[in-house]
Nucleic acid binder design. Structure first.
Length: 894
RNA sequence: GCUGGGGUGGCGGAAUUGGUAGACGCCCAGGACUUAAAAUCCUGUGCCCUUAGGGGCGUACGGGUUCGAUUCCCGUCCCCAGUACCA
């Protein structure tokens, strides 16, 4: 082997060797502790991007580290290979989605292999293969039996331009996220999974994973679930000329009272403030409003229509919409006070939340306050702070609602009670009097999984004229996708155009029947894929429960935080269902979660056209000032360019091809750089300049090993006394072993790389040349080079293997085979002498050298005796001396 | 707006959670080697003052607590992410 570092040559060599011995093939072994390292599976879009490289480099570092620590590691990869881009490609280019997908997987697998990620390739799962999606269907049937899968009519967001259904997120602001055209509501029969059956568990079980998940992810999940404790209260509609008005009975929104009058249900978290209600405010879409549009005065109806349009909120969350509303002329009776209050329509009330109706309590709710102010409505105060100064009612100018708890006033028989206590009692009272009850509402909705798409798992349901909705039989699974469906992108299910697919016999009566032609949301596939890895070829079950019991739950999951909510809530839901089926025995599938930041790119724009044309290419001249700060950039023709940082993507032309990186710098250098450049949870601004540093580092290590190669292979006698040099190097080695172990436990990847660089610098600075080295010197060098090489493995496995084979001088001595993380010896890590900074009045003035065990008293004496210190303490009174053991001495003088 | 996380050299970022601020790397400058370049190696590199020895300032800004604050407390400004006018 050459003394120069040829990345490509050694990378291919070790990838081949690992494959030969099946180095990363995981087998169940009850005698060894297991570790399940998982990264979010990629969508096979065609190419890896740097975000993938970051994700999989981090995962591989953990997998290697745990292997070096003696764990039996499961580190699998698979393909999230169902989804819309395959259909788009089919529409655009007429290719078969399956062919397109399979080709992309081949390309991306090659890229991952060239990066040398240590996967057990035998365990790949492919969402689009019948062997896998058969069990999506299996789970669906189980859930159908359990009452967790059901079908109902629902309104979906529909973009008539794109001919597509949209999720609420995609239809935010009432406009299609893709084309910007208005979104309409369309009625469709859809299948749902009852995520709401697990709402409480999804919230409460967070306690089990709290220690291992990012705080921010748990927060977002609990916001998403959105529990709020309160009560429903029904207000009777009481307008004079009652007959004019119509109150349709809509379950959960309105009801009919004993007197035959309609009641409007409101949800409130503050039933204690109900005596302060000055109005009922309804959403414009509320059924009572819609049913009476013809009965209102003409200008009222007009205003309602206006509000409905204006109510479409802009996508920018920071923009607050001005309150607007109109008095309908209808009245409602406060069931507590008997008071008659007006019914308004308000733009700040959402039909999608609660019942689409609120009781407006302006004195104690900021939004109601603003509304009442704008329209000059009364603002009756019913809660006062115990410390009266805080209550706005006592001030001459009221600018804000008082929304804290306090003492009830002007609240009939409840006056004088603590408002917090009154909440439950008033809810109980409402219940007893039959006009309300305590209730908890959630934002979480059941999971609509029907998609009018081709490239997804067919829903295994059959519709029979005689028997109705009939589940497919388990033995008939999988219900396979046909190969000849016309994919037009027109929004109707392509499967509904394939009679061979949908024409079938009823599993119950054997009569003619037709299949469901919708497919499942792709999030279904990713909700349980990581269980499949434990038993990827099982034909009768999703996986064998016993095998899975060894490997699962996942010990460490790593992926982008864009999946913090949906994917991770669905996966948690799925695990709970699997637990209830009896497949697993735990509540939570992922013990520890790490969310990595995005990789973004620096882009240079043409200043005139605004076109993105350059991404750090060679033909851009970056202009800097004397200190190296970027002041601007010019194209090769001398055009000034604008500079911006954006998410990397092909379409923006600022993407970096990982293959190119590997080709130029090597997989190891690319991986080290990505790990070193920024903390994993931060956004990473891609800047290729830094990668040279990673290459230089590897080359330095390479040269060091070659420099000492001959010496470290020689026989060493242990009777030479170690030099100061040797003792210092051993210290550094053992300190580094400690640091790197700690870093991995706390999932830091940038600092251990820095620690490795420091260690290699220390070896490079070793004051003795190989020919002059004593046995003790060589021993220290060998120890540190071996440790350095082993600890390099998680970041640069190919280089580590190559260097290790040189150090141990043994063809069979592979790290992947049997090597262990170096042992830490705390005695050796201890320095002989430490430097103690001496401060005077908190300012650093000098340092003194001392043995680590020096007592506080001795340190104090030494510090005071120091010449430099005496200069400062001369003619002054020493008031106090603070000694921090092994840290510093601070002398306070006056 | 609300919630969460932040603000440290020209840049990415360290700092044992109250104890030497700026590790490590990039950039930049100077030097060695070379006919030259590349590569490599060495030196310098927070800012200001000083011939030197050294001194002063410095972790967004203003206060506070402390022998000592990047770290804790109060106030202000700014950035990023999430978000739902959620009743």
């Amino acid at each position: 082997m050459d003394e120069r570092y040829f990345a490509k040559k050694i990378e291919q060599k070790w990838q081949r060797k690992w494959a030969e011995i099946g180095a990363f093939n995981a087998e169940t072994d009850e005698t060894r502790p297991k570790f399940y390292q998982l990264e979010m599976l990629p969508y096979p879009s065609g190419n890896l991007h740097m975000g993938h490289v970051r994700n999989y480099s981090a995962g591989d570092a953990v997998a290697w580290y745990k292997r070096l620590r003696g764990f039996n590691v499961l580190h699998p990869i698979g393909w999230d290979s169902f989804g819309q881009p395959a259909e788009d490609a089919a529409v655009k280019r007429g290719v078969n989605p399956r062919t397109w997908t399979d080709e992309n997987i081949e390309i991306m697998r090659g890229q991952l292999q060239r990066l040398g990620i240590s996967y057990d390739w035998r365990r790949q799962m492919y969402a689009h293969r019948p062997e896998y999606y058969k069990f999506d269907q299996w789970f669906f049937l189980k859930m159908f039996e359990m009452g967790l899968a059901y079908k109902r009519m629902t309104q979906v967001n529909w973009c008539s331009h794109d001919q597509a259904t949209l999720s609420n997120e995609q239809a935010s602001g009432g406009l299609c996220w893709r084309c910007g055209n208005p979104v309409i509501k369309k009625d469709l029969e859809q299948w749902f999974l009852k995520t709401t059956a697990y709402t409480d568990q999804l919230l409460d079980d967070m306690a089990e994973i709290e220690a291992g998940w990012p705080h921010n992810v748990l927060k977002r999940q609990s916001d998403w679930i959105g529990r709020s404790e309160g009560a429903f209260v029904e207000f009777e509609v009481s307008a004079s000329g009652d007959s004019l008005f119509y109150c349709p009975v809509v379950d959960g929104i309105t009801s009919r009272s004993d007197q035959g009058k309609g009641r409007i249900r409101v949800f409130t978290t503050r039933i204690d403030t109900i005596y302060g209600a000055n109005a009922i405010v309804l959403a414009a879409e509320h059924p009572v409003i819609q049913a009476n549009l013809d009965n209102f005065a003409e200008d009222v109806t007009k205003k309602i229509a206006f509000i409905r349009v204006e109510n479409a909120r802009p996508a920018d969350h920071a923009v607050e919409i001005e309150k607007d509303g109109v008095d309908t002329g209808l009245k409602a009776v406060n069931p507590f006070s008997g008071e008659e209050i007006p019914i308004w329509v308000g733009n700040y009330v959402m039909m999608e939340y609660g019942t689409g109706a609120v009781m407006s309590v302006p004195a104690h709710d900021q939004r109601d306050f603003e509304f009442a102010n704008k329209f000059g409505l009364s603002i009756p105060v019913v809660v006062e702070a115990e410390n009266k100064d805080e209550t706005d009612s006592t001030k001459s100018v009221v600018t804000q609602a008082f929304s804290d708890y306090g003492v009830l006033v002007n609240s009939g028989e409840w006056s004088g009670m603590q408002s917090k206590e009154a909440k439950s009692e008033m809810a109980a009272f409402a219940n007893a009097k039959n006009f309300g009850e305590a209730a908890t509402t959630f934002r979480l909705r059941d999971w609509g999984i029907s998609r009018q798409r081709f490239w997804g798992t067919p829903i295994p349901i059959i519709y029979c004229d005689k028997c109705g909705v009939v589940p497919e039989k388990y033995e008939n699974l999988p219900v396979e996708l046909p190969d000849n469906a016309p994919i037009t992108g027109t929004g109707e299910s392509p499967l509904s155009k394939v009679p061979e697919f949908y024409q079938t016999a009823c599993p119950k009566c054997d009569g003619p029947a037709h299949r469901e032609t919708d497919t499942m949301d792709t999030f279904v596939n990713s909700s349980w894929y990581f269980f499949r890895y434990t038993d990827p070829t099982n034909e009768s079950m999703p996986f064998d429960p016993e095998t899975a019991a060894y490997w699962t739950p996942v010990d460490q999951y790593i992926g982008g935080d864009d999946h913090a909510v949906m994917h991770l809530i669905y996966a948690r839901f799925w695990s709970k269902v699997m637990r209830d089926i009896g497949l697993v025995k735990f509540d939570e599938p992922v013990k520890r979660l790490l969310t990595q930041g995005m990789v973004v790119g620096e882009t240079f724009f043409d200043d005139e056209s605004g076109k993105r044309i350059y991404f750090q290419p060679a033909d851009v001249t970056i202009e800097r000032d004397a200190k190296g700060k970027i002041t601007g950039a010019r194209s090769s023709e001398g055009k000034p360019l604008k500079y911006a940082i954006e998410r990397m993507s092909k379409s923006k032309g600022n993407g970096v091809d990982p293959d190119e990186m590997v080709e130029i710098y090597g997989a190891d250098a690319s991986r080290i750089f990505v790990m070193f450049a920024a903390p994993i949870e931060n956004e990473l601004v891609w800047n290729e300049a830094g990668i040279e540093g990673a290459v230089r580092f590897l080359q330095r290590v390479w040269r060091l090993v070659y420099k000492w190669q001959a010496s470290i292979r020689r026989e060493l006698s242990d009777d030479t006394a170690p030099s100061v040099e040797a003792r210092k190097l051993r210290q550094k080695t053992h300190q580094t072993i400690k640091r790197i172990g700690d870093s991995f436990e706390s999932l830091q990847f940038n600092t251990p790389v820095a620690a490795l660089m420091e260690l290699s610098n220390a070896i490079g600075d070793f004051g003795v040349e190989p020919d002059a080295a004593t046995d003790a010197d060589v021993f220290a060098i060998r120890e540190s080079l071996t440790a350095l090489t082993l600890m390099l493995t998680p970041f640069a496995p190919h280089s580590a293997e190559e260097l290790y084979s040189i150090i141990v001088d043994n063809e069979n001595g592979m790290i992947a085979n049997d090597a262990r993380f170096p042992d830490y010896n705390s005695e050796l890590a201890k320095p002989d002498e430490i430097e103690i900074p001496v401060q005077i009045n908190g300012k650093l003035r000098t340092r003194i050298a001392a043995a680590p065990e020096t007592s506080n008293a001795d340190l104090e004496t030494m510090a005071l005796a120091d010449e430099k210190v005496r200069e400062f303490t001369n003619n002054k009174q020493v008031v106090k001396v603070i000694v921090v053991p092994k840290r510093l001495v601070n002398i306070v003088v006056r």
